[in-house]
Amino acid sequence: MHELSLAELLLPPVLALAEEHGARVTLVVVQAGELQAIVPDSLRLGFASLAAGTAAEGAELVVEIVPVTARCRRCGGEFVVQEHVYVCPACGVADVETTGGTDLVLTRVELED
């Protein structure tokens, strides 16, 4: 249930854009790294609850899941992590660095014209 905390952090930048443009928000798009372990419905519910009575009330929230990627520290090759196996598919080394799929990023807001 960290989705509610994340919704709390997501709402202010959305509202800042609404205020900047003087318009109501209709759509919000976020990219959620797989490692954020976000349940999209929970994030939507949290966001909708917090957005009530603001310029983002009723806005649709789209959650795009970003797969986890990693880089091998030996060969430098980057790969998509499947089934949480952090082993380089090229050289079989487990010494790898996570390079993507950890963040929650607000990428797009649509406002009423």
Partner: peptide, 14 residues
């Protein structure tokens, strides 16, 4: 109107 941004939601915490 569509506004594209790159805003890390955890930026404040981080």
């Amino acid at each position: 109107m569509r506004v594209d941004v790159v805003h890390n939601v955890l930026k404040l915490n981080d």
